[in-house]
Design a protein around this nucleic acid. Structure first.
Lengths: 171, 171
DNA sequence: CGTAAACTAGTAAAATTTTACTAGTTAGAT
DNA sequence: ATCTAACTAGTAAAATTTTACTAGTTTACG
């Protein structure tokens, strides 16, 4: 929920939006960078409206039928500040999906594990390449996207090194 | 759900266990490494039982009252193999919590952002130190734990570099 | 002109997760 | 001898998320 709140509030910090636009932005703009999967937006939006973090107003444009416009309230902005601070200072140390599998590595045949890990490295390299191309291909260099991409590239690179070493030690 | 299934099945790969033991292991052994937060175990266990992935038998030990023992079925083992393979080859590229905040960086005062990011670096360094100490302090060097720890150290290190660079570019 | 794709807004029901409890046993400390 | 912490097993209700739909509008394309 915390992440969801930060997500919706952050999107509304840019300006008022209607639901479809929020959904589209999450699916098309944020997903490739953030990997948040959000299947429904109306329940969270209603919740946050009840909490007074956002407003929902009728905003008719042209001949379109109803079009509800969501906007962030002062209280919502305060919460946004709070959440983003919390996220920056997030007490949780980072965790990585693959770790769970590594924890159970003993229950996997060594040969198979090695093959899987090699495949993972190849996959990670492809991702790295894609990310770098994506960064190059960005026209109007959106600063925040560039930052995230660099961050991702670095971490993917680290994972490649890490897994490669692991493969070698997997006697 | 996928991750939960892998978690429970993996724990049962080690041998039959009762619920409390599973809970304890998640909270005390896995949590520090994996960071999975699981508040209740009985619903997932019942679910997996219904799916035929695990068995639940009465296993009385000593004078203790009822003690239900969960164990993995052949079908469960098959699913375990499948899930762990999937996880190794996981098509999703890695995502990082902080990225969402970075995406919204423009809505944060630069000075504040810089301070937050510096604090994060300090925090990451402490984590790195803790992880290294933890690795040193391990008596019976549990191989899988050591692997995860190294992996984590590398990635935390990468994040330190990444965020440090970011701070510098934050004019 | 017709039609398909994208725009707009949801809801109802199912599934899952979280929270807040209950109920009793046993081993170790005082 | 008794009290406390850890051991054991849950359930009920609330909250949230996911899935699978409905319903209509506008724009672009052939």
């Amino acid at each position: 929920m915390i992440e969801h709140e930060l997500l919706f509030l952050g999107l509304l910090m840019e300006g008022p939006k209607h639901g479809y636009e929020i959904k589209r932005q999450i699916e098309e703009e944020l997903f490739p960078f953030i990997g948040l999967k959000i299947k429904s937006i109306y329940y969270p939006l209603r919740k946050m409206e009840q909490l007074g973090l956002i407003n929902k107003d009728i905003g008719r444009e042209g001949k379109w039928p109803e079009k509800y416009v969501y906007s962030i309230t002062p209280k919502g902005q305060k919460i946004f500040d709070h959440l983003i601070t919390e996220s920056f200072l997030s007490i949780e140390r980072p965790y990585f999906n693959i770790d769970l599998s590594l924890y159970f590595l003993d229950y996997v045949d060594k040969g198979i594990a090695r093959r899987h890990l090699r495949a993972r490295v190849i996959f990670l390299k492809r991702i790295k390449r894609d990310l770098e191309n994506l960064k190059k291909g960005m026209k109007a260099p959106k600063r925040h996207l560039a930052i995230i991409l660099e961050h991702d590239v670095d971490l993917v690179e680290a994972e490649i090194v890490s897994i490669t070493t692991l493969i070698d030690t997997l006697n």
